[in-house]
Design a protein around this nucleic acid. Sequence first.
DNA 1: TTATAATATAGCTAAATTGCTAAATAGTAA
DNA 2: TTACTATTTAGCAATTTAGCTATATTATAA
Lengths: 93, 93
Amino acid sequence: MNEGIFKAMSDSTRRKIIELLKEGPKTAGEIANHFSFAQPTISRHLTVLKNANLIVDQKDGNFIIYRLNTTILQEWLGWIFEHFGGGDSDEKE
Amino acid sequence: MNEGIFKAMSDSTRRKIIELLKEGPKTAGEIANHFSFAQPTISRHLTVLKNANLIVDQKDGNFIIYRLNTTILQEWLGWIFEHFGGGDSDEKE
DNA sequence: TTATAATATAGCTAAATTGCTAAATAGTAA
DNA sequence: TTACTATTTAGCAATTTAGCTATATTATAA
């Protein structure tokens, strides 16, 4: 359930895409222009993010606009904090 | 720099190991007993976590005791929150 | 229609990952 | 020493990943 998100987040290019989309929605091309990889490579990264439900796409004429799925991202952050945040039993040492 | 941590965290077995170690230090064998994978498989997962600096080991006679590197884990959580948490520019829509 | 533009999909390769079993290592105990 | 126990390391196979180029798809523009 979270597996796809963790996998998606484990790649630094995809993390950069997420950060880009935090600034606001962007077309696939705009996103690709931020990187020096071939366009299809970025397209596939976008697909991974989309399959993880972290981003959402919307056709606009010739373009495809991607935007963050803020809800999922926040839920993921919440899950992470629940599981890994907070104290551990070794705090007194 | 964070890359190793994200990769380490992208595997669910390793995430479970982290959660186990949140309860307190455990020997490699104790950790392995929580899973149905072969013991060397778990040993390698431990190596991945160790290389990511998320856990620390300490010899104790015949045993090797692993414990969480709480500091690194907290730093990672902080980094994640900085980069992915907080508002996005689409909040008003 | 034909051409162009934006994007995705297909198909390939190299490298990394994850599992396994078998063997090596290191410490304890007889 | 010898044997036993805990663990890692080596080496292998199957799968996944991430990149590429070439091609297909879809929409706009001429």
